[in-house]
Amino acid sequence: MGDYRIIEVKQSVFADNNADAAKLREELAAEGTFLINLMSSPGAGKTTTLKRTIASLAGSVRMGVMEADIDGEVDAAAIEQAGARAIQIHTGGMCHLDADMTRQGIREFGTRDLDLVILENVGNLVCPAEFDTGAMRNVMILSVPEGDDKPLKYPLMFRNCQLVLVNKCDVLPVFDDFDCERVKERIRFRNPDCKVIFLSAKTGEGFDEWIETLREWIRAFREGSMTPPVHYDI
């Protein structure tokens, strides 16, 4: 047996990713790439929302989408068809993206000619919330059929978002136990500064407010007046 010695480390495991994400945010600010991290559970309507967003911004904002999935290419194909540049990132079984994977995607994608890049994170309300991707804004989509109790069940997701889009509002008459005021209260309970927009990617209801928010963000980002988000590990 050899000589043993102990090295005191006392290093937080997520510190590495937090530092890397902060660095990536600086790199993206320097090259003028505005990155939004879009999260939701599977089936909440990320791709449908993006398709309508692309159509609404066509001609005025150059937009790219990075699709992160465990496997498959259906989302990237749908986005290309809608008229934005898309890249498919395969996470190789991972349930979330971290800052390093995001950087690799951005570099491969080549984002310098784009005004806005949206990262469509893996459909999951748990792990993506824990890893800062380096994005300037974190947006989540909560769809009406999922229920208005989700902010209570997935606190970190709601805490780490600057905006929640409540999607599929066209089905509110059917899902009549979903209470819009209650969901707003519950989101604010987790995150008092969080903005909430009610919309339907299918009918286009509420989209004006979302598109206007995007335009304001892009403006603030270009002016350099946008404050980076605070990331909570728990």
């Binding site: 043993y4 102990i6 090295i7 480390v9 006392k10 495991v13 997520f14 728990i234």
Partner: peptide, 16 residues
Amino acid sequence: YLLRGNEFIIKEIEVE
């Protein structure tokens, strides 16, 4: 609010 319990720390490593 949480006082402690969300830590994930590499405390020490034993090396040869």
